[in-house]
Amino acid sequence: MSYPVFAVTVDLVVLTVRDGELNVLLVQRGIEPHLGRWALPGGFVLADEDLDAAAKRELAEETGLDGPAGHLEQLGSYGAPDRDPRGRVVTVAYLALLPDLPTPTAGTDAAAAAWTPIGKLGLAFDHDRILADGIERARSKLEYTPLAAAFCPPEFTIAALRQVYEAVWGEELDPRNFHRKATSTPGFVESTGHSTEGEPGRPARLYRRGDAVLLNPPILRRKPNG
């Protein structure tokens, strides 16, 4: 039997929170197709590597970020026949949630790499759709899992955790209500026994991620009107 020939790529939706805003890691393409346009980092899977290894390799090669040290999961697969002008290419997308990291450095076929605030970006290929799917996955994950802590350093304040929710969801949360929910939800966070030092105002307690896999009860977003 003969089988159709197609290539496999990986693309990464890498999200972080910088200066109170949700940012995505983008690369400017240094080669055709879509020369000069911004895109998600990614590339072709080599014949001798699995998908997870390809995702980590491409992230390091195109941005100089070795990792990720946060959360990485498969997001979905995208295989529209015309999604890549070079031929039939199926991509497996990954979602990474990371604490704030240094400015990335472009490499291999990327002309530049940058953290970019979420908005109407007009990305190459079908990357706008992949990015939208990744953002919605992240927003949903924050409701039912403790993955908001993946955006935080190993020790964090409840205020910093709340700012992650606000940045990812795009809505303000009541500080007292959020503090109560975060500290009373079993396994979400646990106190380190330490407090912030050298900052203006009253010292704040420091927490780390707990051992919960799911949040019960969940911390839910505000439902849109209508």
Rank of each mutant, 00 (worst) to 15 (best):
F178C: 05
L121A: 09
P200K: 06
P153Y: 14
I219H: 09
P117G: 05
A204I: 01
S195G: 00
L35K: 14
E190F: 08
V24C: 07
Q163P: 00
R29I: 03
D84G: 01
D82R: 04
L173Q: 10
A212H: 05
G70F: 06
P102A: 08
T105A: 11
L147Y: 13
S140I: 13
A53R: 02
A113C: 12
S195T: 15
R88N: 13
K223S: 13
N177Y: 08
L65C: 01
P186D: 06
L12Y: 06
E166N: 04
T196E: 03
V213H: 14
V14L: 11
L101S: 04
G122N: 15
A150T: 10
G201R: 07
E197R: 14
A149W: 08
P175G: 02
R209L: 11
L59Y: 04
G87E: 04
A132K: 07
P154C: 08
N177W: 08
D100W: 06
L214E: 14
P146N: 01
G226V: 07
Q163S: 13
R137P: 00
D109N: 15
P41T: 00
V14M: 10
G107H: 06
L215M: 03
A96Q: 01
L59T: 01
G36S: 10
A167H: 02
P104F: 08
A148Q: 05
V17K: 08
S77N: 07
A159H: 10
P104E: 02
Y3P: 00
G70V: 08
V8Y: 00
A55Y: 10
L26Q: 06
D52C: 01
A111Q: 13
V189H: 03
S195Y: 14
T196Q: 03
L95A: 01
V189F: 04
P146G: 03
L214M: 15
H71I: 10
D174S: 12
G79Q: 01
P68T: 06
V45R: 12
P99M: 07
D19P: 09
P154N: 10
W38L: 10
L51R: 08
E61I: 10
V92R: 14
D174Y: 09
P217I: 05
G198W: 13
V189N: 03
D48R: 11
A93G: 12
R129C: 12
D174Q: 11
K56T: 14
E136P: 01
D174P: 06
T183E: 09
A149Y: 07
G87N: 04
P153G: 15
D133G: 09
L214N: 12
D82Y: 05
A149I: 12
A93Y: 04
S77V: 09
G76S: 12
G67T: 02
G198A: 07
A47W: 09
V45F: 05
P33V: 11
R180V: 12
E73Q: 14
G70E: 03
A53C: 02
L65T: 02
G210R: 02
E21L: 15
P99R: 09
L22G: 07
L35F: 15
K141A: 15
V89T: 14
R88M: 14
W115I: 01
L147W: 11
Y94V: 05
T192Q: 07
P218T: 03
P104S: 03
R86W: 02
A138P: 02
E190G: 07
S191H: 15
D133K: 06
T183D: 08
D126T: 15
L215R: 01
A93E: 03
